[in-house]
């Protein structure tokens, strides 16, 4: 346990390291700060969250940030791992330096006693695909927008979306775009794909930026209502697209809740308490009625 945790009066300091700088992780940070405030008020012992995001979603860059955070000997690390194997050696360094860890939005390497907070990526993709299938009457051409092809959570959602569509014999996946988690790229890709497939009935995406770009492309092409979209996550732009009727809905993980519970778990760890192996924060289906 870190020295500060042993001192009953010193503030507890946790370092939150997401995959990269992204609005979705800002929401995680918001939830984390809320948990820290609550713990500080209820226990009388201040809890500090330091947010350290790599500029790019690259494992070696993230490992560098993790190592630098370990060097400051915080009371806990809260990580969204880019790749469990690629991050493994660095996480072992944290174990050697006796810095407790909690992970969110990802699963820890096998054999490490670490609490994971998050939702099931496959379930999220499956929910989106099944909802779209229902919206288009279980038949027609659909397209999938993959986020960053090297991001395991994006590729996992894509796999599960394909598997879900495969259960409907009259649905055909005719195109796959890659947006690299950029709204602008997603918009360009979606426009081109809709030009090439005029009978396209609907879209699903695998990242948070993709469905926003898809929605813009649908609106610009004047095909609102004709081409259905089920988005992903709850960025403000996504919610606006649902409000405007461009997108039907969004299968959203709960980033604020992930940050919140990750801090709770990290706090318990820092105080030497046992914590659950997995905390499932669930998935919301955001529609015009419930946003």
């Amino acid at each position: 346990m870190a020295a500060r945790a042993a001192d009953d009066h010193a503030p507890l300091r946790f370092v939150l390291i997401p995959k990269t700088v992204h609005p979705w992780f800002d929401k995680v940070n918001t939830g984390a700060q809320a948990a820290a405030d609550l713990l500080g008020k209820t226990t009388g012992r201040k809890v500090e969250i330091e947010y350290r995001a790599p500029e790019t979603a690259d494992v070696s860059s993230q490992n560098d940030i993790i190592e630098r955070a370990i060097a400051t000997h915080p009371d806990g690390l809260i990580l969204d791992m880019l790749d469990e194997k690629g991050n493994h050696a660095t996480m072992l360094e944290a174990v050697d330096e006796k810095v407790p860890m909690t992970v969110f939005d990802s699963l820890p390497p096998e054999g490490m006693d670490i609490t994971a907070v998050g939702a099931d990526f496959c379930e999220q993709g499956t929910i989106a695909a099944q909802r779209l299938a229902g919206l288009i009457g279980e038949k027609g051409e659909v397209a999938i927008m993959i986020g960053v092809p090297t991001a395991p959570n994006h590729t996992r959602r894509a796999e599960c979306e394909r598997a879900a569509f495969a259960r409907y014999p009259q649905i055909r996946v005719v195109a796959t775009g890659i947006d690299n988690d950029s709204i602008e790229t997603a918009q360009k890709q979606a426009s081109a794909i809709m030009q090439a497939h005029p009978d396209l009935a609907g879209w699903v995406a695998c990242d948070a930026a993709g469905p926003v770009g898809i929605g813009q492309a649908i609106r610009e092409s004047g095909r609102t209502g004709k081409v259905k979209e089920v988005g992903l996550d709850n960025l403000n732009d996504m919610i606006q697209l649902i409000r405007d009727g461009v997108a039907d809905s969004s299968a959203s993980s709960r980033p604020e809740m992930q940050g919140y519970w990750a801090v709770i778990a990290a706090w318990q760890r820092a105080l030497g308490q046992k914590t659950p192996k997995y905390i499932d924060t669930g998935i919301d289906v955001l529609t015009k009625k419930n946003i």
């Binding site: 494992v59 070696s60 790749d83 194997k85 690629g86 050696a89």
Partner: peptide
């Protein structure tokens, strides 16, 4: 060397 460091061959190696 980065592959040896990470224990995996990541497609993002070299991006930075």
């Amino acid at each position: 060397l980065m592959v040896a460091r990470l224990g995996t061959a990541q497609p993002s190696i070299g991006d930075t």
